[in-house]
Amino acid sequence: MLTSKKQLLVWILPFLVLVLLFFIVPLLYMVISSFSNGGGFTLGHYQEVLTSSYILQGFKNSITLSAVSAIIALVVTLFAVYAMMRFSEPVRERILMVSNLTSNFSGIPLAFAFIVLLGNSGLFTLLFEKWGIDSLSSFSLYSWGGLLLVYIYFQLPLSLMLLYPIYYGIQQQWKDAAALLGASTFQFWRKIGIPIMLPGIVGTFSVLFANAMGAYASAYALTGSNYNLVAIRIGALLSGDIFAQPELASAIAVLLGVTMVIAMLLSEWSIKKTRRNL
């Protein structure tokens, strides 16, 4: 029995080799490269990142864009899930399926769709011009506000997918019990519902935040390398739009990676906490 169980370990070997070759080794090389200066050791790349106002601006832009898009998507889906609960379960599942379909709609195709709607001769741009609403027709898709709209789009399906099960965990019995004891709907949510869901909401926020921090394709398709985001900066330094600086790119990527790991650990921790509550 023991030998046959040991033989089974052979099946795990190819998996370990794949993880090693295409995940661990590249990440190690990236870390090494971020400290290397043509062979020698240096902290210079990190020093450059932390003193370059341009790169720091990129971090700041990415963080605000990610946080704001995550918060807006969270608020919209929180209310939307609440409204969804009036439908029967099969209908809700169909809505989720359709929302999952739109979650595939990201990157370059998504950027293009927004160009059709809000680009220089986009549907809404023309509509606003026709109605004479200058403040809206002069809106530029290729700016922070435009990127925000695109980012909100790809956050929404993910947020819905993550919030639905958390919301679903709120038992009808709890509502009934609270109502019997004289609590209003508002009181139920304020004192019971929201506190129970809170860790889950925090966890969802950090997944959404990380999702946006790592996004590259939509911003690249809309603004090329012009808009200053961390991911765009890394891509530009790597492919050398001006001249390639892969070691500096590595240092930025390491810092971005650290941010992502912290966000993911936070979400893991909150999701575990939610599970205990439900």
Binding site: F23, P26, L27, M30, G257
Partner: peptide, 17 residues
Amino acid sequence: MVYAFPGVILAVGLIRA
């Protein structure tokens, strides 16, 4: 970890390695 290291980070590693 796979979630935490999106394409743009992995791309740097693959090129360096």
